[in-house]
């Protein structure tokens, strides 16, 4: 038996932000940006319901629909649109991590928001939680806020998805570090 040195074949990014970033705080008077995609209609439905609650609390809500076309001329347009979207908002809610590559791009876009100092929460479904966490770590921000919706979701009917959205409203607010109190209530 001969013992000798072998060289480690692995490499890992060294830097990591382990903290979640700023809380969103009261939503009243703030602009919440919700990032949608071209795949998951269930995420459209969840976002619509949450947006209505945010607006009722005095927030402005803007949507941006991302494309998975992140290469070539299309990719340049998407990157520019993402920057413009982030310029317009105070708080980012980014989804939906519900497949492998779309989890990648969800985390990617969430990190782009977080690096600007925006209160940022990524939204995933249960089966993609670990992937989202692993990708956030490899993106240098393991502390990224992540709210988890049940899986399967996109396979559900509208009524069932709306029920999930209602059930998860308090949870997503908690993850965001946000509250729905109005400006008047917050001032008391």
């Amino acid at each position: 038996m001969a013992i000798a040195n072998v060289l480690d074949p692995t490499a890992l990014r060294a830097d990591d932000i382990t903290t979640p970033g700023p809380d969103a705080g009261p939503l009243a008077g703030r602009t919440v940006g919700i990032r949608l995609d071209e795949i998951w209609r269930a995420w459209d439905w969840v976002s619509e319901l949450w947006a209505a609650e945010f607006r009722a609390a005095g927030a402005e809500v803007v949507f941006w629909r991302s494309s998975q076309g992140r290469t070539g001329a299309e990719g340049e347009k998407v990157a520019l649109a993402l920057e413009e979207f982030l310029d317009r908002i105070d708080i980012a809610l980014v989804g939906l991590a519900n497949c492998g590559s779309c989890t990648g791009w969800t985390v990617h876009d969430a990190l782009a928001a977080a690096v600007r100092g925006l209160p940022t929460t990524a939204v995933c479904t249960d089966n993609f939680t670990e992937l989202a966490q692993n990708l956030a770590r490899r993106g240098g921000h393991s502390g990224l806020r992540l709210h988890v919706l049940p899986y399967p979701l996109n396979e559900q009917q509208r009524g069932d998805v709306d029920a999930v959205a209602r059930t998860h409203l308090a949870g997503v607010l908690q993850t965001m570090g946000a509250s729905l109190e109005t400006l008047a209530e917050a001032a008391v």
Partner: peptide, 14 residues
């Protein structure tokens, strides 16, 4: 190369 989108290829369900 960014246009090869290895990021998506290495994470995907595909």
């Amino acid at each position: 190369a960014p246009d090869f989108e290895l990021f998506g290829q290495n994470a995907t369900t595909a």
